[in-house]
């Protein structure tokens, strides 16, 4: 039975993705039980430059190919497939990232391998893996048994304590048996956010609104409160999808990661993708009418009331305090 664990050390704009060190930790948990090794795989011409940060791996493989210079699904999946076929790992671990959401299912489809998303815990159980996975917006968990290998697991960032140990692993350049094809999807360049908006990553106080704000006109209530607190308004994805605030105000996996002194979550359920971007705040107060909302699991204080009722009262109370 396969013993090793292959970790895709994803590079995004010349930096390793933060989830990489969590994947290495998860990989170590599995490999310790199977007696195998943790293999880190870096794709891209500058892959070797990232090797020193991957000391927690037993082996570091780098596929240096110009087709991997920027992300495109075809060459990425082809390279990962080649290495997977050569190494025959027990599991392949990827982050639940923009790239992971492409590559993991495409690889699973190509090699007919089992795939589990939203992984928060992974434990070997005999020759199988037992995976605890979060879904339904963080409101439900499933324990999934995976017998086949390689098990392809997409790990939710924030689920494992990062492994950043220094190690002795040498870089192994990997040559693929044939040159990578460009594929039908080609990277054409980055589109960066327009400058000029508030930088929510630099704010001490954030008033964050979600679906509970109900309509765009109600944003004014949040703006008033943010003004009274000397902070800024930000939002979860549904508000951005409605076009009520620019993408630069989005907090979460696909938005900004913020660590303010105070984060007020208003009408935000707290799906894992949102928590990923704000759980590092010093003080979190959550307001939601749903007592089961996952946001209450990470908030320090909570209130089960309608945000539209609380907002004017809170603004008034802040202003009264400030005189």
């Amino acid at each position: 039975m396969a013993k090793d664990v292959l970790v895709l050390a994803e590079v995004y704009r010349d930096a390793l993705a933060d989830v990489t060190w969590e994947l290495l930790a998860a990989g170590r948990t599995i490999a310790s039980a199977t007696g195998g090794q943790v293999l880190a795989l870096v794709l891209g011409p500058n892959g070797a430059a990232h090797a020193p940060a991957l000391g927690a791996a037993d082996r570091i493989m780098v596929v240096d190919d110009p087709r991997l210079a920027d992300y495109a699904p075809g060459p990425y999946v082809a390279a990962l497939q080649e290495v997977t076929a050569a190494e025959q790992p027990r599991a392949v671990l990827l982050g639940a990232t923009s790239i992971g959401w492409d590559v993991a299912p495409l690889l699973a489809a190509r090699i007919n391998a089992p795939l589990v998303t939203g992984c928060k815990e992974i434990q070997p159980e005999g020759e199988a893996l037992r995976v605890a996975t979060s879904f339904c917006g963080g409101k439900m968990m499933a324990e999934v048994r995976v017998d086949g290998a390689p098990a392809i697991c997409m790990v939710l960032p924030g689920s494992f304590r990062p492994a950043d140990a220094a190690g002795q692993a040498k870089i192994e350049p990997r040559k693929l048996p044939s040159p990578l094809e460009p594929g039908a999807v080609r990277f054409d360049g980055w589109v960066l956010p327009e400058a000029g908006d508030v930088d929510i990553t630099q704010q001490d106080v954030l008033v964050s609104v979600g679906r509970g704000i109900q309509q765009k006109d109600n944003l004014e209530l949040a703006e008033n409160l943010a003004g009274a607190l000397g902070g800024a308004v930000c939002a979860s994805r549904p508000v951005i999808d409605q076009g009520w605030l620019p993408a630069t105000r989005q907090v979460g996996k696909s938005g900004m990661t913020v660590k303010p002194k105070f984060y007020l979550a208003l009408g935000i359920s707290g799906a894992p993708e949102h928590q990923e971007g704000m759980k590092g705040a010093d003080l979190i107060i959550a307001v939601n009418t749903d007592p089961q909302a996952p946001i209450f699991d990470i908030a320090h204080y909570g209130a089960e009331v309608d945000v539209l009722d609380l907002l004017p009262a809170l603004t008034e109370a802040i202003e009264a305090k400030r005189g």
């Binding site: 795939l115 439900m140 999934v144 979190i284 909570g302």
Partner: peptide, 30 residues
């Protein structure tokens, strides 16, 4: 290729300390 062994609600972690009362009372507490 996978089998669900069980479904279960997530374990409550360190749940928030809940503030109760009217909106005015909760605002005052915040």
């Amino acid at each position: 290729l996978t089998a669900i062994a069980r479904l279960y609600p997530p374990a409550a972690g360190s749940r928030a300390e809940m503030l109760s009362g009217s909106e005015t009372e909760i605002a005052s507490r915040i």
